[in-house]
Every structure is written in structure tokens, then in C-alpha cells.
Design a protein around this nucleic acid. Structure first.
Lengths: 325, 325
DNA sequence: TTGTAAGCGTTATCAG
DNA sequence: CTGATAACGCTTACAA
């Protein structure tokens, strides 16, 4: 494997000149430039990027921390990040953690180890204070609302989005509204929960624990919800379902069981995924693709300009009315 | 940022001893080991992995080449790869190429550049001969059948799988069978196409070009198929659909239009995705998760043992009968 | 069991 | 415009 020294010797120049050619520096005579390029081609020389990373202290790699790869929510975010990363010549290292805090710590350690230039956290089990400890080693952007922190964040206001979905249902006369969550212990769930309680008390409705359905992450669990609802002595007339995939599972099972939607059960999903569009699901579009792209842009800024303050950016959501309400 | 030299000085030992501690080498006295570990903790020292990568010539990173991140087929494969990679302390660099050959070349170049220890190709537009040129720089595993090559491959026999799906339909009396493909110019499509022609001629049925539907990659395109079928003067009584997601789109649209499945149209999907299970789709399970895991295992072996020959491994598929046929 | 010193392959600095 | 030479931070013979 040829190295820069051999190229220099064969081209009859110094290693610095070769390096300059490699990095498209000005101040290299056309003659030497072509001579260097020719020997590079002749020897099929390829730079050892690890040496470059060592000396420059940068790798053009960023880590994406997420619990599961195979999940629509994260796939859409990834797509948005990927588009921007590609355009700016950054690589994505996918770190699937399964919400294991030890695995998550390893990802943060990569920042200390200089293996990556930054981290985008899509969802995490690590407390914000712990995350802040790593901010001195490099930029971190979270796709979750976390208030003013040492790290940046991009998010939508889940409380407001939840309220606007509730309002849409209430408008149609619904007062018995249930909702599903992916996992109880997440910032967005806490935001929704507190908004739920507020809206219920404004309506003068009691809070029924059994109308809050936990552990709904995929389509099959969505289908299972329908059965859980049927077992209830009194069941809600409308459901807010986090994730159009999950909602699609519920809708499919409802049709199978002859429960008409929206007459017997109104459904609002979240995320505006393609499956929701196909089945005519009313949904809250929280712009996941855009959120991913924006997360990268902010991280990129922070990498370029290391002493920039952390930014918190709220993105708009949009209620998309279709036929499930 | 502390480095190994400072640790050595403060602990009163040599850098080699620190290095030995860092790498859990034997032949370090307990006393010095603890002394080193204490100063590491005190100085919050973290190794600069780029220096390690430079000297060892390895990075523990592998690239995954795929056209789109947000697609069920690739997500499942990724999940399988991710599980094994995690267990073996390898990182996945996701390279979304959009089937752009220039982007794909950049990924192969990463191998020359020593940025990665190997590549798993999930799907590519680059000709096999071109891929072989890169094999001297490091191991490559493809998840496509490619015959005996310088690179390894894991695959299922698409021709055989296709035939067994056809047989299942023929068994039920179908003779007018159409099929969808993601893109015409792929190895699996070519395999299916040639098998299709063979089976038709065995049946004594003519080949009807209009029953081969191109460009079907996602659910919405699946739904669109149904409309395309309705416009046909004579339409097939059964469809083979690559991807349960696509098939689900077709099935949904069929129900919406009042076309009963399987009576008026039988459908067989591929990949055995959760959505297929939910809607009762008969499908060919081609073990994507297992394929991903196996791809990593083979790559891992090749990394560990560089002068090992390339391996080609065929995986079994399975016809899963449900209610869409 | 420990330390010295020679790399690994670049880029950065500085003098010409 | 060009070239020596010193980093970058680590691992690994080799010698003790």
C-alpha cells in the first residue's frame, strides 16, 4: 500500500506538496500538480483517512442514537438526517441501543474518544443531566423537547399537538377520548399526559386510567388495542394513537371486527406516515423528515463553530384531516 | 485533553505500561495497574481512537450499502446485522446511495481509505466486476446471489422461491398469474422473470407483458397496482407481489373497491413482514433478519481471517400460507 | 514485569 | 510556490 512518502519520492516533490495536491490547496504549480496526480493514479494510491483523522481531530462521522432501527418513526427521521448528511459529506453511524443505558453511554463515549464529531439523539433513556456531562466533548442534538440545556434540541410541542388533536375530536362531539403511548417514561408521553388531564378537567370529564394504553409501538400492538378496548365495560368513542402504523393496526382490526370507523370509533394518528395516508387516517403531521434534516443542520453548525451556544428549535406540526374522525 | 504520556508521567510509569493497562494485557503488576487506572479516572482520560485506528489499521466500523433507509426490506436486514454487530463490538456506517453509482463508489473507496474494515452490500447498481476490484482492500459481503465471486454472498434462490409461490397458486387452479417488481434491472428480478417464463411455458400460457408491473416499491405503489389491473382488458386472477408492504397496499385498495380476496384476486407477498401477518397475507418468508445476521457473521470471519476464501451461502425460504390465496 | 524508541501516515508550521 | 521537520497519540518490538 503506497503512502504519501512514496508518491512524493516518485513524483520528485516533497510530501507537503503531495498533501497540498490531495487537499486542493492553491499555491501548487500546475506542472507539479499534474505530476503528483499522475503518480497517484499510477500507484493506485489511496489516503489513509485514519492518519487524517488523527491529525485533524475530526472524522466526518456522526452517531445517531436510537432504540430500534426497524421502526417507521425512526426511519423517517433517519431519512431526513441522511439527506443532509450526504449533502455535507458526513457519515452516519447507527447506534441501536434498545434503551439500554450502558449501550447509550458507549455512544457518548465515542465522542470523548474522538471517533465521531457529534451525536444526534433520536430517543434515549439517559437523563438529560447525564447527557449534559458529555457536551464538553462535542456537540449533541436531541430530537426531544428538553428546555434550555447545554445540548441543542429540535422538537415539536407535544402538549400543543395533543391538545389540537383532542380539540378536533371534541369539535365532533366526542367526550370519551382515550390514547395510546409507546412507553410511559418518555418526555413526549409526560407532555401528553399532563395535557390530557388538563383537557379532561376543562371538559369536566373524569380521568379513566383504563383508557390510557401503554406499550403500543407497532402495528400488531395496534391491532391488540382494539381487543383491549372491546373488553372494557365502557369504551371511549375516540382514540389518539401515537404512530400511524399503530393506528393502522387498530383500524384494520376494527374493520375486521365490523366496528365502523369513524362512526363507532374515531381515530387520530401521529407522524403522517404513508400507511396513514393510504387508509384515510386523520393524523398530526409532526414533520419527522424535516426534524431529522434540521437536527443535522444544527449539529453541522455546532461542529463548524464549536463555541456556538446550544439552540432549541421548535418545529410546527399540522393536523391533517382525513376520514377517520 | 490528557493523553497517554501525561497519564504515564503522573502515574510514574512508562507509556507502554499505560497502554498495557488500557488493553488488558497480562504482565502488569497489580500495583501499577491500579495506579494507572486511578490517574485515568482522575484526569478523565479517554483514548483517542483515531490513533489506535492508525496504528492497528482497523476501525471496528463496517459500511452498509443500501439504496433507501426508509424501506421495510432494508430495515429488517439492518436489524439482523445490527444485532450481530452490537454483540461483536462493530459499528455500522449507513450509506444510503439511492442506487447512484458515484455514491456507491464512494463507499467502496472507504475500504481503500481504511475508514472501514468491511462492507455489507444490501442492494446495489454497481456491476459485480466492479465490486470485485475492491476485494483486495477488504472483505465485502453481498445479500444477493452472484455466483462464485471474489466477494462473499448470502442469498436465497429467488427463482426457486418464485416457482414455489407460482406452484401454490397453480395448485388452487390459477393459470392467469401476474407479478410486480421493484426495479427491472436487479438480479432477483432477472431470476424471477426467467422462472416466470419457464413456468408459463410449462403451463402452456402465453406471456402477457402487461401482467408484469414495474416500479412497485412501497405501499402507495401497491395500491396503485390495483387501479392498473382494473384498466386491463383481461386481468390476472392472482398476483405475486415483492414485498408484503406493497402487497398490503394492493389488498387494502382491493377491499376499498369491493374486490374480494382471494376469490376475485389471490395475492402472495414476499418477505413476511409484520403487516402481512396482520392482514392474513400468504407470503414467502425469505428470512431477512437471519440473512442480515449471517451477512455480518461471514464478514466478521473474513475480517478476522483475511486470507479466507469468499463464501457463498444460500439460505432457505419458506412459504407461509394464510388467507390471501 | 517494565521501559525505550521506532513507527503508523498524515497535516501544520515555518523558513526559504 | 516549495520543502524540512515537528507534531498527532497510540501500539509494539526489543532490550533490560
Amino acid at each position: 500500500m503506497a503512502n504519501i512518502k512514496e508518491i512524493a519520492k516518485l513524483a520528485g516533490v516533497s510530501v507537503s506538496t503531495v498533501s497540498r495536491v490531495l487537499n486542493n490547496h492553491p499555491y501548487v504549480s500546475e506542472e507539479k500538480r499534474t505530476r503528483v496526480n499522475e503518480t497517484i493514479k499510477k500507484l493506485k494510491y489511496a489516503r489513509n483517512m485514519n492518519a487524517v483523522h488523527l491529525i485533524t481531530g475530526k472524522t466526518q462521522n456522526i452517531a445517531i442514537m436510537l432504540p430500534f432501527i426497524n421502526h417507521a418513526y425512526f426511519s423517517i427521521l433517519l431519512e431526513g438526517i441522511g439527506k443532509e448528511a450526504l449533502a455535507n459529506h458526513y457519515r452516519l453511524i447507527i447506534c441501536q441501543t434498545g434503551y439500554d443505558q450502558d449501550e447509550e453511554r458507549e455512544v457518548f463515549e465515542m465522542l470523548r474518544n474522538r471517533e465521531i464529531d457529534g451525536i444526534i439523539v433520536l430517543s434515549t433513556a439517559t437523563p438529560v443531566e447525564k447527557i449534559e456531562e458529555y457536551c464538553s466533548y462535542g456537540p449533541i442534538v436531541c430530537c426531544q423537547q428538553a428546555g434550555k440545556r447545554a445540548f441543542s434540541s429540535v422538537y415539536i410541542d407535544h402538549a400543543r399537538a395533543f391538545r389540537s388533536a383532542m380539540a378536533c375530536l371534541i369539535d365532533k362531539g366526542h367526550r370519551h377520548i382515550g390514547f395510546t403511548v409507546g412507553r410511559m417514561d418518555s418526555p413526549s408521553t409526560r407532555a401528553r399526559m399532563s395535557e390530557y388531564e388538563k383537557v379532561l378537567s376543562e371538559l369536566g370529564e373524569p380521568l379513566r386510567e383504563e383508557w390510557i394504553l401503554d406499550g403500543c409501538l407497532d402495528m400488531e400492538e395496534g391491532a391488540a388495542i382494539m381487543k383491549r378496548l372491546l373488553d372494557l365495560s365502557e369504551r371511549p368513542s375516540a382514540m389518539l394513537v401515537t404512530g400511524d402504523h399503530v393506528a393502522a393496526g387498530l383500524v384494520w382490526e376494527a374493520r375486521r371486527l365490523g366496528i365502523s370507523i369513524p362512526e363507532e370509533l374515531a381515530v387520530i394518528g401521529f407522524d403522517n406516515q404513508p400507511i396513514g395516508k393510504m387508509i384515510g387516517l386523520t393524523t398530526i403531521d409532526n414533520r419527522l423528515y424535516e426534524m431529522g434534516a434540521e437536527a443535522f443542520r444544527i449539529l453541522f453548525q455546532c461542529i463548524e463553530n464549536p463555541d456556538q451556544e446550544s439552540v432549541q428549535k421548535e418545529l410546527d406540526f399540522e393536523l391533517i384531516k382525513r376520514s377517520s374522525v
